[in-house]
Design a binder for these strands. Structure first.
Lengths: 189, 189
DNA sequence: GCCACAATCCTAGCACCGCTAGACATCCGA
DNA sequence: TCGGATGTCTAGCGGTGCTAGGATTGTGGC
């Protein structure tokens, strides 16, 4: 009865431990080094325990991605509300790039590793919330364009800067100028 | 003497065979299924032969990426020269998205798998050529902005559309509108 | 034509991976 | 106290990237 609840609580706790351990390991040594064996050793359980929580390695990565998206949403909201309508775009753009730079492994999990996350109509709530945050920033700037299409295009532009920046595809010394150009092109309605 | 040359020629031929086999397999079954064992079986040699050509699996992916970049450069050039100054941006943008859609595995190799390609000052020639093609398109539209920074920003915006599009992150029915918005925002000088 | 040598290739194996079956221990309700 | 359910672990399967060492082939000198 009551112990049942304790069990579930402990289970949830352990699940969170797995996710945070995976994230830590990925962030410090890269995703390839996050193996089930090492993860099991890290949380001091045997490997099958991990499979009682997640369907497999991919599902663990997905969980990290989902957690990252939730964080990202909070970061967006904080940046947007703190900046006010005028500077919302600049604040959110900076937040996006900062997040990508500070959490490269999570960023990688979200955008290049997570293949188990549904993205269409039946996307998880946390994912829709993240897009809603972006929508709140971009839609007012859409002018006579479709707000959804404009949000997606603006997001893509921002994402491209983050994605290419990670991996040294872009010149670091031009970072500020790129951001300025992005804001100039997407900022005025 | 002369046979030496034949040997080298055959070696180069086999190397090309490896790259094209890897590309084919990746394009039809995804990169994870491109294993050294399967690759060796496909080209009808034993595994160690592959290691006499490439340092490892990663180097083979890099080779496919490099080949893809070279093709991309040609595609850019063709699109740009065929369209003329006025429509160069639209043509190259369409070419970029088309290439990503038609060769998803190569695209993935270039932008998310290839970690062995130097991208800074000592980048391979073929890579600089690809950027030069983009530069030729974007620089005339930079206005009073730095042409390099503008090219990188435009490229990032375009790349974001391709990267997010692959994987179903963007609504397919808004594809045309997104492209229109991109052209509107980066087209006029 | 023969033979020593060098280059080439393959067989076999290592350590590691994701994942799972089946044995073992532990805790619960009656 | 005891049967059963729950939870955990040990051991192992097939597959991976990669490599050492032996067999085989072709080459150039006599």
């Amino acid at each position: 009865m009551v112990t049942q609840q304790r069990r579930e609580r402990e289970r949830a706790q352990r699940e969170a431990l797995i996710v945070s351990a995976a994230r830590d390991m990925a962030e410090s040594d890269g995703w390839p080094s996050v193996t089930i064996r090492r993860l099991a050793e890290r949380i001091e359980y045997s490997q099958p325990v991990l499979y009682s929580h997640f369907a497999g390695r991919g599902a663990i990565i997905d969980a990290v991605a989902l957690q990252g998206i939730a964080e990202l949403t909070e970061v967006f909201k904080a940046a947007r509300t703190a900046a006010g309508p005028g500077g919302a775009l600049a604040a959110v753009a900076q937040a996006y790039l900062d997040f990508a730079a500070a959490n490269p492994a999570v960023f990688e999990a979200i955008f290049t590793l997570a293949d188990g996350l549904p993205f269409g109509v039946d996307a998880p709530e946390v994912l829709k919330a993240a897009f809603a945050e972006l929508f709140a920033v971009f839609a007012p700037l859409a002018g006579d364009r479709d707000p959804d299409a404009f949000t997606e295009t603006g997001w893509a532009a921002l994402h491209g800067l983050a994605a290419l920046g990670r991996g040294g595809r872009l010149r670091p010394d031009l970072q500020e100028q790129r951001l300025a150009i992005f804001l100039e092109r997407f900022g005025k309605a």
